[in-house]
Write a protein that binds this DNA or RNA. Structure first.
Lengths: 256, 256
DNA sequence: CTTACTTTCTCAAAAATTGAGATTTCAGGC
DNA sequence: GCCTGAAATCTCAATTTTTGAGAAAGTAAG
């Protein structure tokens, strides 16, 4: 094992249920000699990627918190979408959680969550949680807007092949412009999602609302989907404004 | 440069105002050859620590968001303190921002922030922001509870020496049990802070409230300080419960 | 002062990194 | 389809770092 891999192998041991590791446990888990693991841990400590915990254990360090903040402050999508996300949750006028998710290289990840004050539930999705590719409106609406080539690569990487049923499913979502799912991720919760695509920024994302299925009638669903679709369009517009020189942005509509 | 350092040097280039870097710019900034930087960037991409941006630029990647979430979910201090922090902000009954900060190896960092719904200001402090060691109630109250040896090491590392004025200042804060600062960090804002110390967990932290200085009279300040000190005690108790075997925790009071 | 444990150190063999430049890829323009 | 320039990867021998087993040193509790 070489370079970064050695370090990442240690960091990837940490999980929701494995917050603290001893050197001994790491060495066992990685089938690596103790002296090597000690050295690796020492370097990670110096970098702030690990910190020492109790009983000779180590925990994820402050550098992650620090870099996450930089991510929040500098991500163009987040900057464009945060205000809109807050508005959406307010305009929904019912208990809900708004989510912003996007496709990274080969995974969909939620990058922002905002609950209405009266929401007494929490969806599985939250900032920093990788999402299943094939389940939930949030992910599907993203896959539906992917260029065929990229979708194929993604599915290959995920071990799935692009069967016709899936293809038809995604084509329908794409035409429709939104996606609704019920109980696909969390029992009793429904997810409504609209895509956010920005060619210039090379990103495909989605804006979604999670609400309790009970009492969500067709009229209400319609209202909320329209809310999402228009909010997503506003985010796209804000992104285009970020990535385009100002002349084009203003002149183009006037010239046609 | 060797091992992790090479990778961290690249990552540390990213800042609040430098969200995207090209390989060329990195090579210039680090005075390193392009081919080496390309290799480094490729590894960081594969690890998810960087992602590709527009115009051949690179940005901090999804791994930081992911690991930050793990930090939130598994940090014992955060788990113990979050509910209390929310209560404190609610019980303050005036526009305020509650902060939880802690000392890492050689820096104080804010690890949680919670604004009351009516707070129309934002303090400089927020999750993931390293704080000045010597300024602000939040940091001072932490330094005041540090063992002499550790304080000396910390100051040496920060390039300061422990002069008598500082020593007396910190001793007073320690005796007092809390710290109040006005405008030390943000003009027009006051900070009230209480220390959180847990020997068993080897951590020194602080719980603080930031409010507008105007209209903060002595009586109100006293009320809020009491609120903070009591809340900090509750967090300490919750931490002790986490780090102590259950028998001791229950039996000890009965036996004395 | 032990004792048990955690962490760092030592050293020669083995493996990875380095950097300059050549090569390949890729996106856009023509 | 075919350029063109920039971006990214590859090549190779010299150099530097990593590796792992075990010794040694530091550390905390009894």
């Amino acid at each position: 094992m070489a370079g970064l891999e050695r370090y990442m192998a240690v960091l990837r041991l940490f999980g929701e249920a494995e917050g603290a590791w001893t050197v001994q446990a790491m060495a066992d888990a990685l089938a690596a000699p103790q002296s090597t693991v000690y050295r690796t841990v020492r370097d990670l400590l110096a970098a702030g990627l690990l910190e020492t915990g109790v009983d000779a254990s180590y925990r994820l360090g402050p550098a992650f918190i620090e870099f996450d903040r930089l991510t929040r402050l500098t991500d163009p999508l987040l900057r464009a979408a945060m205000p809109v996300l807050e508005d959406v949750v307010a305009q929904a006028r019912r208990p809900c959680v708004g989510l912003l998710s996007r496709l990274y290289d080969d995974q969909v990840m939620c990058i922002a969550d905002r609950a209405s004050p009266d929401a007494h539930f929490r969806p599985s999705y939250e900032r920093g949680r990788p999402m299943p590719l094939m389940q939930g409106a949030t992910s599907k609406v993203i896959l539906a807007r992917l260029p065929a080539r990229r979708l194929a690569k993604l599915l290959a990487h995920a071990g799935k092949s692009a069967d016709d049923a899936l293809r038809a499913d995604l084509a329908a979502i794409r035409r429709q412009g939104f996606c609704v799912g019920r109980g696909e991720i969390d029992r009793g919760l429904a997810g409504l999602a609209a895509p956010i695509v920005c060619e210039d920024a090379g990103l495909v994302a989605s804006l979604s609302l999670v609400l309790e299925s009970d009492g969500l009638d067709a009229a209400e669903e319609r209202r909320l989907v329209l809310l999402l679709v228009s909010a997503a369009a506003m985010i796209e517009a804000a992104l285009r404004a970020t990535f385009m020189p100002s002349e084009e942005k203003i002149a183009a509509p006037l010239m046609t």
